[in-house]
């Protein structure tokens, strides 16, 4: 029995190491290529650690494309969207989960129904509408179309369902009004839920491609994803610079993810999947 256990542990580790290699191969290759000369990238067998690391690649990308502007634009949009998303969805979710009011079921159904509608199915009318508001080629357009997602409300509501009503009742007896209950009880208790929503929203907005592609055609407004894409199409043969820029683009998301991940599984556990 003990021996059998040992074998199965070894097997599990073997599988996990295989998975890790598959998951990380592109990233390690990216990192390694970003420090090479273009002509050395495709040498085989793969030279994982470059003999003469080309640190200059990381200097050059900042002058070859306006990478700093792209990052600034993306950071601005992402921070505002994440903030609005967290605030408005946790606010609305409080009403959906803890208050009784007229039209609650219909309104909630409207939210749920739109989760199943692909954004791409209404992106064209949305674009025309934004254009008639004079919002194409503004960051505001991207912010407005990302900040009020049905998914966020749904997720936070599921999370709040897990917080006992008796807690709210007790607070009411203590004389708190609903705004105070939201701020002093619900928000502090929903850290895992908020962290999860932060990761989802941050990642989605930072990595959004089609939205900015439609709305932002001026170079000085572009986000990092379409900026990077533009760079790739313009300098398709300069592999190492492309890879260096890609590494830079990955770092912010990685930082956000690693700093919030301790709440992450816990957060997912308490939200979407309980149905």
């Amino acid at each position: 029995m003990k021996k059998q256990k040992k074998i199965s542990t070894i097997l599990i580790y073997l599988v996990l190491i295989l998975v890790t290699i598959t998951m990380l191969f592109p990233f390690v290759w990216m990192l390694s290529s970003s420090l090479k000369l273009d002509k050395d990238i495709f040498t085989f067998p793969i030279q994982w650690i470059p003999k003469e690391p080309q640190w200059d690649n990381y200097k050059n990308i900042w002058t070859r494309i306006p990478l700093a502007i792209f990052i600034k634009n993306t950071a601005k949009i992402t921070l505002i969207v994440t903030f609005l998303q967290l605030l408005t969805s946790s606010f609305a979710a409080y009403a959906f989960s803890k208050l009784h009011f007229k039209g609650k079921d219909i309104l909630f159904m409207a939210y749920i129904a739109t989760i199943a509608v692909p954004w791409q199915a209404y992106m064209v009318p949305q674009f025309i509408m934004m254009r008639s508001f004079g919002l194409n080629n503004t960051h505001l357009a991207i912010i407005l179309l990302q900040a009020f997602s049905a998914f966020g409300v749904f997720m936070m509501r599921q999370f709040y369902q897990g917080i006992p009503d008796s807690l709210i009742e007790a607070a009411r007896i203590d004389g708190m009004n609903d705004y105070q209950i939201y701020a002093k009880i619900m928000l502090p208790l929903s850290k895992p839920g908020l962290s999860t929503l932060t990761i989802f929203t941050f990642v989605n907005t930072w990595n959004d491609f089609l939205g900015p592609l439609l709305y932002l055609t001026r170079d000085n407004l572009k986000t990092i994803q379409i900026g990077l894409r533009m760079f790739i199409t313009q300098y398709s043969a300069e592999y190492s610079l492309i890879m260096a820029a890609s590494v830079v683009v990955l770092i912010p998301v990685l930082v956000v993810f690693l700093s919030l991940q301790k709440y992450f599984v816990q957060g997912v556990a308490a939200t979407g999947v309980k149905g």
Binding site: S89, F91, A92, Y94, A95, L99, T114, M123, P125, M129
Partner: peptide
Amino acid sequence: LTAYSFIAPNFLGFAIFTLGPIIFA
């Protein structure tokens, strides 16, 4: 009214930028 005040900020954005375009489509 309290409940609507909680929902309003998100719902306004949602109605204008999601529900509206879906109907328009």
